[in-house]
Simulated scan of single mutants.
Amino acid sequence: MTTRHGPRVLHLLRKHGPLTRGRLGALSGLSRTTLYDVVATLLDEGAVLASVPQAILRKRGRPAEVLALNPEAGHVLGIEFARDAVRVAAMDASHEIVGTAHEPHGVDVAWPVRVDLAWRLADALTGGTLRSDGVNGIGVGMAGPPERSSLLTVRHGGVAELVRERFGTRAPVDHAARLAALAETVWGAATGAQDVLYLRLSHDVGGGLVVAGRLHRGAHGTAGQFGHITVDADGAPCECGKTGCLETVASVGAVLNACRSVGGPAMDLPELEAALGSGDRTAHSVVARAGAQVGRVLADLCHAVGPDVIVVGGELVAACPAVMESIAHELASHAVRGPGPQPEVRSSGLGSFAAALGAVALHRQRTSPTSLRRLVEAGVVA
């Protein structure tokens, strides 16, 4: 969008339906000159159509032109290829999130099958418009190991090509956790914050930084690999090739393994959640220990980057919200207090769809300021 007022005009057309320029000016509060420029841009981009209804044509005088959203303008899609599921989010021409969808699959499912699944989910979300070239753009989020070799680049490039062939448009790819950081600042727990640190505790551990309102990737695209900060030099081996990384103590698998190693009942996340709910001391101790490690790492990161807000999400937080208490306590104990307020620690507001929504924002960062409350009311995010 080439104008900062465009999303406001598109939102009004979506909310109220076709409007005359006069009515649109009254609702938007924009001056006639500004509105003229905004509408001209939207017409040029094909996001808006202008017409004169037959009933108005039959009247005397200069006919009043009516503006409406172009139903053929297409959607922007966000796709997350997670470890065992595909998640899709769709945004329409008015920059409104119109829906999300997901479907689980086995961890060994081939990539062409995953891409086909993403296409079916997206086609259903957009009312079959994919069959008539109804896509304006796609962003893709993927989990992956740190860039210790060319493996990640090769895999991401291959998936991007599969998506391009299936959907007929280029699909930029980024780390899922990093995209989730962006989504949380647009629609989620950190809406409106300019400096945000996001950490995802999932089957892997990763995150992202939003600095001055923009996603920060670092000089070589490696920013946000918080899961590979060393917390115990003599600890367990990590997938990255090092030992004692945060991922070895705070990922879903690491917490479940720690629970089992001390005789705990948790064999999977639902069982761990049930054990916590029943007051099992072993389960609470394991989760608290993992949260303490996370809190200490976040304290060190705060000293380096100074965020306004810290958002923590992922399957571990969703199943074990008690981990947030340990994280917040340890962060408060270890962070050096400066002249300003301490960063707030919040649970993810977008849950499992954070990365898919972030992939939408990756393609088009200038979205309307839809709040989490409105997404929930619309049934987009549960």
Rank of each mutant, 00 (worst) to 15 (best):
Leu256Gln: 05
Val231Gly: 03
Gly99Leu: 02
Ala82Glu: 05
Leu12Lys: 02
Ala181Ile: 03
His216Cys: 11
Ala254Gln: 01
Ala275Tyr: 05
Ser94Phe: 07
Ala354Tyr: 03
Gly168Val: 00
Gly6Phe: 00
Arg83Ser: 15
Pro270Ile: 11
Ser348Asp: 11
Ala299Ser: 15
Arg83Val: 13
Glu96Lys: 07
Gly128Phe: 05
Leu276His: 07
Pro112Asp: 03
Ala299Lys: 05
Gly358Asp: 08
Pro18Phe: 00
Gly99Asp: 03
Glu325Met: 09
Glu72His: 13
Glu45Cys: 01
Gln342Lys: 12
Leu201Ser: 06
His175Asp: 14
Gly128Glu: 06
Ala82Gln: 12
Ser326Tyr: 08
Ser94Met: 01
Ala355Gly: 10
Leu67Trp: 01
Leu209Trp: 14
Arg217Cys: 09
Ala110Phe: 00
Arg21Tyr: 10
Val211Pro: 06
Arg200Tyr: 04
Arg289Thr: 15
Ala189Leu: 02
Ser285Arg: 13
Thr34His: 07
Gln342Met: 15
Arg374Glu: 15
Gly253Thr: 14
Val294Lys: 02
Ala319Thr: 04
Val107Ser: 13
Val309Gln: 08
Glu65Cys: 04
Gly264Asn: 08
Gly144Lys: 00
Ser251Val: 01
Gly29Glu: 10
Val52Pro: 09
Val39Gly: 07
Gly263Phe: 04
Gly306Glu: 15
His16Pro: 10
Pro18Ser: 03
Ala171Gly: 04
Glu271Val: 07
His175Met: 11
Ala356Trp: 00
Ser31Ala: 14
Glu344Ser: 15
Leu209Thr: 03
Ala47Thr: 11
Leu182Thr: 01
Leu197Ser: 11
Ala328Leu: 03
Glu165Ala: 15
Gly29Ala: 06
Leu49Asp: 12
Gln54Met: 14
Glu161Pro: 06
Phe167Ala: 04
Lys242Asn: 15
Pro145Tyr: 02
Pro237Leu: 10
Asp232Tyr: 00
